[in-house]
């Protein structure tokens, strides 16, 4: 892990409530793997105080991209930065997806919900480079919540989409797409990121079909480096459920290790 107090923004795009920032960071970019994250200081002032944990969306040589939804003051301020501005970043942090696996020529499923697509794009790209047959399943509330759709289509990714209001793809949930697909083929592995309720349903479905999986979890974080114990999640370790730090032991965990929240 490295610090880059002045990563220069070379490209910014805004789309509805989503922002993409590409930064030049030779110190950090070469060390990044899909599923890892950065701790991003929004402003040098004391408000907002804490860094924001944001997953790495892409990496091309010495450049890194972040892709995030504007959900609060921190992300709104970050999205206001312009090309030429600098950002103070720390990373890469955490354990990412384990993707150098032998998939035995079977397809691999990548399942995203809304802004959860951010780290999966990086993963799908790396899998594609390794000539893995990747299928992306992407769901959101409506077509506006599927922000990377056009980009992924133009890059030739195999995509199946769902929206809750039917404004794009099938009307329903991403699990409806998976249920249908599982009838004709079972993937070698499944990776997912999205809202907790969606990931839980995806896990249940995958495990019912004997499909191994990894999920990227999200949390508010204090430090991002394992010191504050603020970002814990119930995880099975040696068969026992304990509070495990998402920043250090995650954010990616095997599906069978996660103790999912009970539905309200």
């Amino acid at each position: 892990m490295f610090t880059d107090k002045e990563a220069r923004i070379v490209k910014k795009t805004l789309q509805n409530d989503f922002a993409a920032l590409t930064m030049e960071s030779p110190a950090i970019a070469p060390h990044c793997f899909p599923g890892q994250f950065l701790m991003v200081r929004v402003l040098p002032q004391q408000y907002p105080l804490l860094r924001r944990p944001l997953s790495i969306h892409d990496r091309i040589q010495s450049r890194l991209s972040l892709f995030f939804k504007i959900t609060g003051e921190g992300t709104a301020l970050l999205a206001r930065k312009n090309e030429g501005d600098t950002v103070d970043i720390l990373g890469p942090l955490g354990r990412g997806f384990t993707f150098d696996r032998n998939f035995k020529a079977k397809p691999v499923y990548v399942v995203g919900g809304g802004r959860g697509i951010a780290p999966l794009y990086f993963l799908a790209g790396e899998l594609k480079k390794r000539r893995v047959h990747v299928r992306i399943f992407y769901g959101g509330k409506n077509s506006k919540e599927l922000p990377l759709l056009a980009k992924m289509r133009s890059e030739g990714f195999n995509l199946d989409c769902s929206t809750e209001d039917g404004s794009y793809g099938i009307q329903g949930m991403v699990t409806d797409l998976l249920k249908k697909s599982f009838k004709s083929e079972l993937p070698a592995f499944l990776y997912a990121c999205g809202p907790e309720a969606m990931m839980k349903n995806v896990y249940i479905l995958a495990s019912e079909h004997g499909v191994s999986s990894e999920f990227s979890l999200e949390s508010i974080m204090g430090c991002g480096i394992g010191a504050c114990w603020g970002c814990v999640k119930r995880i099975r370790k040696d068969g026992i459920g304990t509070w495990v730090k998402i920043c250090e032991d995650g954010p990616v965990f095997p599906g069978q290790d996660i103790i999912w929240e009970k539905n309200d």
């Binding site: 004391q46 408000y47 907002p48 105080l49 804490l50 949390s219 508010i220 974080m221 204090g222 504050c228 114990w229 603020g230 970002c231 814990v232 999640k233 509070w243």
Partner: peptide, 18 residues
């Protein structure tokens, strides 16, 4: 330790209940 959420940010501050 305590159940999450364990952290919340406030203006120029942080409330923790680790």
């Amino acid at each position: 330790g305590n159940p999450p959420p364990r952290l919340v940010e406030t203006p120029a501050g942080l409330i923790n209940a680790i």
